[in-house]
């Protein structure tokens, strides 16, 4: 993966914005893999690859319900790294390698979110007396500090993801046969579809909404067969 400097910078900036959007600011869902992947694809001049990887990670995202203080992987910057990887390797090889890089980056991103929250906890604890005194400057300082740390975290995750993308092609692309590349792509796409279905069924439950899910599934199957 050899990209012009301006493209690389644009990807890092986009990955950082996407990472911050997940939780901190403004949660407008540019962090959703569909959006993150499409824009990353546009930056690389390869929207179809961005859409394809965006769909894979969007399905994996259904596995996550971000309620309470639950811990979860971070698929936004991961999708950006995945698209950068896939762009460098055409076809099924790109899909498999891109998804693999994205999965590792997503795992790393989730770990950094947990670390950031622990760091924030210490800083809030240390500022407790100022906060209890109702000092508005201390309040804003602690809060803005958290935002800036999240931006730094998102930038680091994106850079690491892009380094993995840069390494993936020479390390794995050269040793994988066509069949090997297809196996990798099958593994990732299959688990993404399974995660999408299982995650949705967790939301749907066993009540009357299940019938709507079944109706949708049936309609989708009919449409798929009709369009073949």
């Amino acid at each position: 993966m050899n990209l012009p400097a301006e493209v690389l910078i644009a990807l890092i900036v986009w990955g950082t914005l996407v990472g911050v959007d997940l939780v901190s600011l403004p949660q407008m869902m540019i962090a959703r893999p569909l959006v993150a992947g499409t824009v990353a694809g546009a930056i690389l001049g390869d929207i179809p690859t961005g859409l394809k990887l965006g769909v894979v990670f969007e399905l994996l995202q259904y596995d996550i319900l971000p309620v309470g203080a639950v811990r979860y992987p971070e698929y936004g910057p991961a999708t950006v790294a995945a698209v950068a990887t896939a762009h460098a390797s055409a076809g099924v090889l790109g899909l498999g390698l891109g998804a693999l890089v994205g999965l590792v980056t997503g795992l790393l991103g989730g770990v950094t979110i947990n670390v950031l929250r622990r760091v924030n906890s210490r800083i809030v604890h240390a500022a407790a007396s100022e906060l209890e005194a109702g000092d508005p400057n201390a309040l804003v300082r602690v809060h803005v500090g958290g935002l800036l740390r999240d931006a730094l975290r998102a930038a680091v995750v994106t850079v690491v993801g892009l380094v993995l993308a840069w390494l993936a092609r020479p390390l794995l692309g050269g040793v994988l046969t066509v069949r090997g590349a297809v196996l990798l792509a099958v593994a990732v796409v299959a688990t993404a579809l399974a995660a999408g279905a299982a995650g949705t069924l967790r939301l749907v439950g066993r009540g009357p909404t299940l019938a709507w899910f079944a109706a949708g599934l049936g309609g989708g199957i009919v449409a798929t067969l009709w369009l073949r």
Partner: peptide, 13 residues
């Protein structure tokens, strides 16, 4: 939501 995601799964596959 259930209908939309249900329909999307086979199309996406």
């Amino acid at each position: 939501m259930a209908f939309a995601v249900g329909a999307a799964l086979p199309l996406t596959a």
